[in-house]
Amino acid sequence: MNELRVGMVGHAFMGAAHSQAWRAVNRFFDLPLRAHMTALCGRDANRAAAAAEKLGWASYETDWRVLVERDDIDLVDICTPGDTHAEIAIAALRNGKHVLCEKPLANTVAEAEAMAEAAASAPGVRSMCGYTYRRVPAVALLARLVAEGRVGRVHHVRAAYLQDWLVDPATPMSWRLSAERAGLGALGDIGSHIVDIVQHLTGERITGVSGLTETLVPERPTVDGGTGQVTVDDAAIFLARLTGGALATFEATRFATGRKNALRVEINGSAGSLAFDLERLNELEYYDASRPSGENGFTRILVTEPDHPYLAAWWPPGHLLGYEHGFTHQARDLIEAIATGVQPRPSFADALDVQLVLDAVARSHGEWIPIPERRP
């Protein structure tokens, strides 16, 4: 079997999740290419060597520039903070490497545009942004049901991504709280997921937004005993309209006390409704308005059947999947796209659409901001 030789930049949270996917994907899915975990890259040699050994990579580098120029690398997987995405991805594309880049695509619209342009200018080279929740089987089923018209015309969408890991003001500074490193706070980190998932599920673009952002704890302790200024938002709330006319509401916060990783989306249409909650990721709720009123209500669909998206490769019905499986499905879809010569989704252009929305929300301050068409 031909190999797809992968080099990964970054080895923390997302690096571990992506490594799990590359290790598992060919063991469960029959694919035309076999992923080979060729090299991991990290700035510190000792930590990179230890991570490569632990996560299953054959070698390591300490300079991503060396990695993207290696002849034995076919795909570069970017799992670093957002301030490095553009430079690494563009260099990899120019070296003829396929690219998987974690979300959000970049820290600014200009960087995202440059990345989308580089991807469009690299014929035969595939690029994808890691909005992994598209690959949760229940979300994929939800998308399929909407596309089949099961909810009819979409009237309302409400989406929220709620976490609470910053509620304690003593939680120390990290790169995610610096605009220089992360670009945006909750809006970019988790708000980007719900923007992508809504546009994906409905098949429509967001055409305008009005939003508010807030930094609830402006200073936090640093590891050296000092304090650092928080330069990103802690929470964001915004209204939006979709191309089909539907109204949408979005909330992204890292201050929702008691909520650990609650991504929720509900779509209400003329013929029914669908709802998903990541904390119950093997389930989907469906309301079919065509049923008699005396019998009707939301139906719980347990998304573990072999005819549900991705499930035939896994366990018998009723045996649940977890968070890590979405990353394996992402790797599966990317390998299939590379092998068959098609553009995987979400493309860098799709991810640029998300970036345009995030930028408009950040600039809104309560005003209505139209979303421009992307240029590439």
Rank of each mutant, 00 (worst) to 15 (best):
D189V: 14
G244Y: 03
T249H: 05
V217E: 08
D234T: 00
I206R: 08
D189C: 15
T249S: 12
G225F: 11
V209T: 10
T299I: 14
I194A: 06
P218W: 15
L284V: 01
A236P: 03
Q199M: 15
E295L: 07
L177Q: 08
E279N: 12
L184P: 01
R254Y: 09
S293R: 05
G203N: 12
P221L: 01
I301W: 08
G294A: 10
A236Y: 04
S210K: 12
V303Q: 04
R254F: 08
K260Q: 14
V230M: 13
G269V: 02
G244S: 10
D288H: 15
E266W: 06
D189K: 14
R176Q: 12
N261K: 12
A179V: 04
L263D: 07
G226R: 00
R241I: 10
H200Q: 13
G191W: 05
F298Y: 12
N261F: 14
R220C: 04
G272K: 14
D234P: 02
V303H: 04
G208T: 08
V230D: 10
Q199A: 13
I190P: 07
V230C: 11
R264Y: 06
V209G: 06
G244A: 00
A248K: 02
P292F: 08
A182T: 00
R264H: 07
G211L: 14
M173R: 05
R280Q: 11
A256V: 07
A240W: 06
M173S: 04
A252P: 01
I197A: 13
I301K: 01
L201P: 07
Y286P: 06
T207K: 10
T222N: 14
Q229I: 14
G228A: 05
S270M: 02
R291P: 14
A246N: 03
T222P: 09
T227W: 11
D288A: 15
N261H: 13
H200V: 14
A182F: 03
G297K: 01
V232E: 03
R280E: 05
L184R: 13
G258Y: 07
V195D: 03
L274H: 07
A186D: 11
L239T: 15
S290V: 08
I206Q: 06
S174K: 03
E266R: 15
G208Y: 13
V303M: 05
